[in-house]
């Protein structure tokens, strides 16, 4: 493992570069096939509405998978991530438009641990509200 960021250069409170990703129906379909999660609420408007959702929603795991890119883009080597967790608090509602909807991901160094790892707290915001809760990644950086 070789990270772009060295442990010695990290300070608590550092804000990682922000990332905005547009969620589209096409993107949801690609994720469904790549992950094997073919639940129709992520692809079929009628099914989504029949179970009380406003429209097709993103897979929670797609939101979580894109969110951790804030951390992996920053460190370069994604295998620096030794722990990653999140709560899926709200859905990302995806309309049937070419541009889709933007979700903005940010990250902040929350703690430098005694074992030489670093905790990054991640935020995911869609339509003015967070969609992930307590999203945290622990990374081990190069010396």
């Amino acid at each position: 493992m070789t990270t772009k960021i060295a442990f010695a250069d990290v300070v608590v409170g550092f804000e990682l570069p922000e990332l905005t990703v547009n969620f589209t129906r096409e993107g949801l379909a690609a994720y469904a096939h790549a992950s094997g999660d073919m639940n129709p609420i992520h692809q079929d408007e009628e099914v989504a509405k029949s179970v009380g959702l406003p429209d097709v929603i993103s897979h929670g795991m797609l939101t979580m998978g894109r969110a951790v890119r804030v951390v992996t883009d920053w460190v370069g080597d994604p295998t620096a991530v030794i722990e990653y967790s999140a709560r899926m608090t709200r859905p990302v509602v995806v309309p049937n438009t070419a541009e889709g909807v933007p979700v903005t991901f940010t990250g902040k160094v929350a703690a430098i641990n005694e074992d030489g790892t670093v905790r990054v707290d991640i935020s995911a915001v869609f339509d003015g509200q967070t969609v992930l809760g307590q999203a945290r990644a622990t990374v081990r950086l190069s010396d």
Binding site: M61, T79, E83, Y84, S85, A86, R87, M88
Partner: peptide
């Protein structure tokens, strides 16, 4: 699905 956590060994 409400929460997900991963702990990586390798």
């Amino acid at each position: 699905h409400s929460d997900q956590r991963f702990e990586y060994v390798r």
